[in-house]
Simulated assay, not measured.
Amino acid sequence: MDIVPLFGISLTIPSIPPPILAYWHTPPVGSYKIKTDGYVKDGFASGREIILDSLGQCVLAFFSSYGECLILEAELGAILDGIILAQRIVISDLCIESNSTLAIHCITRGG
């Protein structure tokens, strides 16, 4: 039974876009990939990172907290934290993947 009309209100359910398939490639044999994502919610910034081997298996996943900052700072912080952690566990042959075009541009082109 639909009870919404009993309260004299109309209910509109927003349409939700279909999911988008995202593809990624494993790194070359013997190397590793760091996948990062920085985000800001309610003024609080953090980052998620995962280190994958050449088979696509998770080597390490971690979360970083940055406090109040801009999304670009969170994206760059997540990338930096991933590199530092990879060095700590003696991984040197890395590919870095980020969904932030601006962060990658800052790193590869210096700003």
Results as ranks from 00 to 15, higher is better:
1 M>C: 08
2 D>M: 11
2 D>A: 06
3 I>E: 00
5 P>N: 06
7 F>P: 03
7 F>A: 12
8 G>V: 14
8 G>H: 11
11 L>D: 03
12 T>N: 02
14 P>L: 13
14 P>N: 12
14 P>Y: 08
15 S>E: 06
18 P>H: 12
18 P>S: 13
18 P>I: 15
19 P>T: 13
19 P>L: 14
20 I>P: 02
24 W>N: 06
24 W>H: 05
25 H>I: 14
27 P>G: 05
27 P>K: 08
28 P>D: 03
28 P>E: 03
30 G>A: 05
31 S>C: 11
31 S>Y: 00
32 Y>G: 01
33 K>W: 03
33 K>P: 02
35 K>M: 09
38 G>T: 07
40 V>D: 01
41 K>L: 13
44 F>L: 12
45 A>M: 09
47 G>F: 07
48 R>F: 09
50 I>V: 15
50 I>M: 11
50 I>R: 02
51 I>K: 00
56 G>I: 04
59 V>D: 00
59 V>G: 05
60 L>V: 13
61 A>E: 09
63 F>W: 09
67 G>R: 11
68 E>C: 08
69 C>E: 03
70 L>Q: 09
73 E>D: 06
74 A>W: 05
75 E>W: 01
75 E>P: 01
75 E>N: 08
77 G>H: 02
78 A>T: 14
84 I>E: 02
84 I>S: 04
85 L>D: 01
87 Q>W: 12
89 I>P: 11
90 V>G: 03
90 V>W: 09
90 V>E: 05
92 S>G: 10
92 S>V: 15
97 E>N: 09
98 S>I: 04
101 T>W: 09
102 L>E: 05
105 H>D: 08
105 H>G: 01
106 C>Y: 05
108 T>D: 05
108 T>F: 10
